[in-house]
Simulated scan of single mutants.
Amino acid sequence: MTTNIQIIFYSMYGHVYQLAEAIASGAREVTGAEVSVFQVPELVPEAVLEKSGAKSARTQFSHVAIADVEHLAKADAIIFGTPTRFGNMCAQMRNFLDQTGGLWARGALIAKLGSVFTSTASQHGGQETTLTSFHTTLLHHGMLVVGAPYSCPELGNMAEISGGTPYGASTVAKLDGSRQPSENELAIARFQGKHVATIASRLTAAPAR
């Protein structure tokens, strides 16, 4: 039986995109998982993206299709990725989610799995508040929230600076954005993708009652 896993992200400089690809890789390890990766629409003017250097950085994921709100209803699990903006999700992701009122009205996402990953510029830049505050929207939709439990060994790595929380995968980009996701962080992301897809596949295979 096929399990539909959707990964919906926003990335400005590519850090969240790299986590999204790692999560997709982990999810694809699960037999029957059909994994799709989408990005939410950009809201920042082209001139601002150009000036900040984000425009050139975004070429690495320019091929990724734009997410369609209505398409979410087809998923068995949705894994959302957003950079942190002052301890919360970015405006682009908030704008996308604010268009899901129709799905909420008809309960289209109830009992689907929801999971979140993020990035911050600094080590204590609001990763956990971004992830847990994102969960509020998922719960309003009636989704079942899934994190990255401590059965993921990389969460206990104390030998280096690393993102990664029990609420979801994360990376630290450094204040200038020069730090790229580490192998430890990518391993946590792969774990999260596989973990979500495994649970989703069990639920889709369960007999209806």
Rank of each mutant, 00 (worst) to 15 (best):
V64K: 05
A65C: 08
I66K: 12
D68I: 08
D68L: 10
V69R: 08
V69I: 13
L72N: 01
A73K: 12
K74A: 13
K74F: 06
A75K: 00
A75H: 01
D76H: 05
A77Q: 02
A77R: 01
F80G: 00
G81L: 10
T82E: 07
T82I: 10
P83L: 05
P83C: 05
T84V: 11
T84H: 01
R85Y: 07
F86L: 13
G87S: 02
N88W: 08
M89R: 02
C90S: 13
C90V: 14
R94S: 13
R94E: 11
F96Y: 15
D98A: 08
D98C: 06
Q99Y: 10
T100A: 15
T100I: 10
T100K: 06
G102T: 09
L103A: 12
A105I: 10
A105F: 13
G107T: 10
A108F: 02
A111C: 11
A111I: 05
K112S: 07
G114K: 03
V116P: 01
T118L: 13
A121D: 03
A121S: 09
S122F: 07
Q123R: 14
H124R: 11
H124F: 14
H124Y: 13
G125V: 06
Q127H: 10
E128M: 05
S133F: 06
S133V: 03
F134N: 00
F134M: 15
H135L: 09
T136R: 04
T137E: 08
T137K: 04
L138E: 00
L139N: 08
H140V: 06
H140N: 11
